[in-house]
Simulated scan of single mutants.
Amino acid sequence: MNCLQYFYRLLSRREYSASELKKKGNEHGYSESEITEAINDLQLKDYQSDTRLVANLIASSQGKYGKSVLKRKCMEKGIPADVFEEVWLSQDESDEIDGLADLKAKVMRKYKIEDFQSIDQKTKAKLLNYLQYRGFNGFAVMNQWRMQQEEEEE
């Protein structure tokens, strides 16, 4: 089995970044030139695309994780930060707002929050940790939810 066939087999199961494919090819014992040639061929045929991989990762994690966690996941896959930033900025902001609405509903159920104006300190600390762990800026998200609630009340 040559390098290109091996990469076809890998990509038939899931998306891989170019650096992940290089690593897999090296582990399998293929030469650098053979790996580079195979990856270029795959990218020309649009079978492998780092930007598509980032877009899929962002879409599948919308509302679950924030920008910093997604950026870290991309860096772990060997995707450059500038590619991530480019795709992140091109994403539709309405998708992000919808994801935050789902997150807001989940948080309200989990912590039994009725009103974001009057949250006790213990619950607020838990909520901020929850948001921060998922890569969101807790204070910014909380302020946004507070402002939305004030607008709904008016």
Rank of each mutant, 00 (worst) to 15 (best):
D102A: 14
K124I: 10
G29V: 00
S12W: 05
L89I: 02
E76D: 11
G99K: 06
D92I: 01
Q121V: 14
Y111V: 06
Y8R: 13
K24W: 04
G135I: 13
F136L: 03
C74L: 01
R109Y: 08
L21Y: 06
Q91N: 12
S118I: 10
E85N: 06
S60V: 01
Y65A: 01
S90D: 02
L42K: 01
N137W: 06
F7P: 00
E96V: 09
S49V: 07
Y111I: 04
Y16G: 07
N40K: 14
S31G: 13
G135P: 12
K24F: 06
M75H: 06
W145L: 05
S17G: 13
E37T: 10
S68T: 13
I35L: 10
E114L: 03
R14F: 08
S31Y: 09
S61K: 02
G63R: 03
Q48Y: 05
S19F: 12
R72Y: 03
N40M: 04
Q91W: 05
A105Y: 08
V54F: 12
R9H: 07
A105W: 08
S17R: 10
Q132E: 07
S17C: 15
V141E: 03
K73V: 15
Q62R: 01
S17V: 12
R109K: 14
Y111T: 05
D41R: 11
S61H: 04
A59V: 02
L21H: 05
E85S: 11
Q43D: 10
K106D: 09
C74I: 00
T51A: 13
K122P: 03
A101S: 14
Y16T: 10
L10C: 10
I97Q: 07
M142P: 00
D120S: 04
F7N: 01
L89T: 02
W88R: 02
N129T: 13
K67N: 08
S31H: 06
D98S: 04
Q91T: 08
N40T: 03
Q91I: 06
K122E: 12
Q117H: 10
N2S: 14
